[in-house]
């Protein structure tokens, strides 16, 4: 049996005070992952004494464009991402990724901060946010630190969040000129779909040549990471000289070198290669159309 005391935080300050003065606190935002884990008595949800409800903290619910980045409050819902003009303008892949999460009911409730902090290997926002080089802000009673999202993640369902910290926002740096983005996902069906595989690709194209490629598959490795070798294979290459199918194969090899051969490998090897191919072809087509 999972048992706990419930405390609803009326403000961020009080939430931080509670975290700073109690041991064994679990924070709950939208609850779309956590309440399922609690109900199923999942080991991931065990070992806490207090449930700290931060879902009512309106100050963490915002999406705003700043000078060099878009700041997304940690309690912004997936629906907010889907509907936000700022997100759709600057990071359409993030809106596409959010659109594929769960169902309308889940997107109305589930939060960006929750998706990141739950750190599921199949989290749909992690690949696009890593590919966009997002930073996360973590607040304590005494201060604040900012670190790259890929350094915040520590493993499947594990992060480097300290027990007295609350994630307040995610900062996504604006992309400069010449960048293209794409998000791909496959699952068993369209709605209520936990990704079997997903993929975010961000890259720049100048004079027909690829620069700054970022390729991040999700649910392919223990937790989403950039596929550096695959990125190298296209960096500095002319798009006419890149064979998307071959790069797809290369990504699959990079996945297998990270995970070893697993029960799902025969499927994922082919599926990831196809997703990479599809994403690159889409981006190259857009680049041509933009010329």
């Amino acid at each position: 049996m999972i048992d706990y005391e419930f405390f609803k935080a009326p403000s961020l300050k009080e939430a931080l005070e509670f975290l700073g003065s109690h041991e064994g606190v679990k924070a709950i935002a939208g609850g779309t992952d956590l309440l399922v884990d609690i109900r199923k008595e999942n080991a991931r949800a065990k070992g806490f004494k207090y449930l700290l409800d931060i879902s009512g903290l309106k100050e963490l619910k915002f999406i705003e464009e700043r000078n060099d980045c878009v700041a997304i409050g940690a309690l912004s819902t997936h629906t907010m991402l889907v509907e936000s003009p700022v997100i759709n303008k600057h990071f359409p892949l993030l809106a596409s990724a959010a659109k594929t999460i769960g169902s309308t009911q889940i997107r109305n409730r589930g939060t960006v901060g929750g998706n990141i902090n739950n750190a599921s290997p199949a989290a749909d926002l992690l690949p696009p946010l890593i590919a966009l080089k997002a930073h996360v802000k973590l607040r304590t009673l005494n201060g604040e630190r900012k670190l790259p999202l890929d350094e915040f993640l520590a493993g499947p369902y594990r992060t480097n969040r300290q027990s007295d910290e609350i994630m307040t926002e995610v900062c996504v740096p604006l992309l400069g000129e010449g960048y293209f983005t794409n998000f791909q996902k496959i699952g068993r069906r369209k709605a209520m779909n936990i990704a079997r595989l997903n993929l975010a690709v961000v890259l720049g194209i100048k004079d027909d040549t690829v620069f700054d490629p970022r390729i991040v598959p999700g649910a392919a490795t223990a937790y989403p990471i950039r596929f550096g070798k695959t990125e190298e294979a296209i960096s500095g290459k002319r798009i006419g000289d890149i064979d998307p199918a071959e790069i797809g194969e290369r990504a699959s090899e990079e996945m297998i070198s990270a995970t070893g051969v697993r029960w799902s490998t025969p499927y994922k090897r082919i599926a990831l290669a196809s997703l990479v191919k599809r994403a690159l072809e889409t981006i190259f087509r857009e680049a041509k159309a933009n010329e």
């Binding site: 419930f6 609850g31 779309t32 399922v36 409800d53 629906t79 009911q105 109305n108 409730r109």
Partner: peptide, 25 residues
């Protein structure tokens, strides 16, 4: 567990799963 939608209600204007919300929240 939020898969079937039979428990859907409208909470502050939005469709949500009443099985995935604590009343205390």
């Amino acid at each position: 567990v939020g898969e079937c939608g039979a428990c859907t209600v409208i909470l502050d204007g939005e469709a949500v799963h009443s099985c995935l919300i604590l009343t205390a929240q």
